[in-house]
Write a protein that binds this DNA or RNA. Sequence first.
DNA 1: TATTGTTATACTCTATAACTATA
DNA 2: TATAGTTATAGAGTATAACAATA
Lengths: 149, 149
Amino acid sequence: MTRTGPVEIDEQTQLAARLRLVVGRLHRRIRIDGRESVPPLQLSALVTVEQHGPMRLSELARREAVSAPTMSRVLSALDEQGLVIRTPDPNDARGVQIVLSDAGAAKLAEVRSHRTALVARRLGRLDDDERRRIADALPALEALLVDED
Amino acid sequence: MTRTGPVEIDEQTQLAARLRLVVGRLHRRIRIDGRESVPPLQLSALVTVEQHGPMRLSELARREAVSAPTMSRVLSALDEQGLVIRTPDPNDARGVQIVLSDAGAAKLAEVRSHRTALVARRLGRLDDDERRRIADALPALEALLVDED
DNA sequence: TATTGTTATACTCTATAACTATA
DNA sequence: TATAGTTATAGAGTATAACAATA
C-alpha cells in the first residue's frame, strides 16, 4: 500500500489516458470484418462459453461487459448459425443455458487462428524486449478486466 | 534478428491470442456510451487531429485504421457539433483539411478526463508492480499500432 | 484514367425502455 | 413483486460499391 514506486498519481492519470487510447486503437487494428467469418463480439462470446462451460445469458453478458439485450441478440445470431445451443434451464424456466455446439467449437478453432495470426504478425515486427514487456504486462491487463464495481 | 530470447514461436502465438482477447475485452469495458458526450471513435479522431495538426481525411482514416467512408461520417458528425472544421485543401480541391475548432479543443479537455478516470479507477485496483508492468509495456503496445503493411 | 471524398446500402454492436413468462 | 430474457427503438461504427469532382 505504501506509495514508494515509480508510478505517482499524475503518472497514473497519464498511464490511464495512454492505455485508454492504445486499447481503442489496437482494437480497431486487430479487428477483422465479420463478413467472411464471425464478428468480434460473437467470437468473444464463443470463447467465453468454451472456457467457462454452460452458462446463463446474464452471466455471459456480465463477463463480456454488455447489456442483456445485446447478448440476447448476439446469441440469436450464434444460434441461427448453429454455433451455440440455448436450452431452458431445468431449475428455472425463465433462464436459458448456453452451450457451444460442435459446429461452434469447430468454427472457433478455424477462426481463432486467423485472428491470432494478425496479431502475431504485428508482434513479429517488435524486438524481443518489446514482446517480453507485453508478455509481462498481460496478467495485469487481464486483471483490469475483473469487475468489482 | 537472432532468436535467442525467451519468446519462442509457440509462446508468441499464445501471446498474440491472449493480447487479442484482452484488447477486445478491455475495449468493451473502457468504453463509455456516447449519449452524454463524444463517442469513442469521434474522440479518438479528435485526439489525433489535435496531436498531428491539420490533416487530410485519408490520412486521418489511415491513422485511425478505418475506411474513408467511415471517417467521412465521423467528420460529418464532428462538423455538425462544431468540433472540427473542414476546409478545402488550397493545393488540391479534391481534398479537405481538417482542423480542431476551439470548441473541439474545449470538448476534448472536458471529455478526456472523464474517460481517463474510468481507466484510472481500474488501474487503482492493481498493485504497484502490475501498474509498472503496464507502463513498461505501453511503448511496445503503441509500437504495435504502426502500420507497415 | 486515377484519386479524394461523399453517398447508398447493409450489417454489427450498443443502450434504454417496454414487454412476456416465470419465480 | 421481482427476475430472466426478448423485442422495440434508436444511434454509433463498420465495410464495400457506386458516385461526383478534380488532378
